[in-house]
Design a protein around this nucleic acid. Structure first.
Lengths: 122, 122
DNA sequence: TTATGAACATCTTGTTCATGG
DNA sequence: CCATGAACAAGATGTTCATAA
């Protein structure tokens, strides 16, 4: 089950990066896709990174398929005229394990970047 | 001339990363492709990254097209039975400018990774 | 064989279109 | 219109093939 590679050799993939953030947000409270997207965009804008909606949806769908998240469609009655898909953690153990994997890869990537800065600019 | 984007939003691309290292190596002495490849692989192996030969050649060809490197095919007489393509810096100003660009992107990426570690693991 | 390339295949991501409230 | 998806297109990289010496 945990045999999917998150490390693809060079740097971490955007998908894995987003999945990490999504898990952390969803751990805290209920969210739906566009909310999460807006939050992420706001957060990364200073770094010149603005994830696309389809990539965020794909990340959520991945986590659903992995059984880490569950989804419930609800009518935001009172508020709007729309139906949204709200996510919650389905398997805390898996979620934790996945985050641990991604952390290891982030650490590796950080080292690689530091090395590059040192090797080429010192 | 310098209007090609190196920052693609998320993390730096492998191509730009390799170009940076190639320039730094070639600044120091004459090299040819396979030498550079072996050097890079050795250097990154501890980080689980082993660039492919075609990607290194593509990086070299990019730098040629950009006019930053020049190439000279030579017969390594005395040594082997082969012809190699040896590179040298064609335009030091451009090389310096390119490296500066990449450095900025590396810095940005490092910040982004640090942020992710902080936002998700603290 | 080794070094250099090109061609081709795949994987990842961005852009556009479709549907239902 | 907004939220969710899917479909499609483009880009980046990995794998395989071709050629010369």
């Amino acid at each position: 089950m945990g045999e999917k590679r998150e490390s693809t050799g060079f740097l971490i993939k955007q998908r894995a990066f987003l999945k990490l953030y999504l898990l952390t947000s969803i751990e805290k409270e209920r969210w739906y896709g566009m909310q999460l997207l807006d939050e992420l965009r706001e957060s990364f804008k200073p770094f010149g990174f603005e994830p696309q909606h389809s990539e965020v949806y794909r990340a959520l769908h991945d986590l659903l398929e992995d059984g880490i998240l569950s989804r419930r469609k609800i009518k935001e009655d009172g508020s709007k005229y729309k139906e949204v898909a709200v996510y919650s953690i389905a398997n805390k153990e898996e979620a934790k394990a996945y985050k641990k994997l991604v952390k290891a890869d982030l650490d590796r990537c950080e080292q690689l970047l530091r090395k590059a800065l040192k090797d080429n600019f010192s």
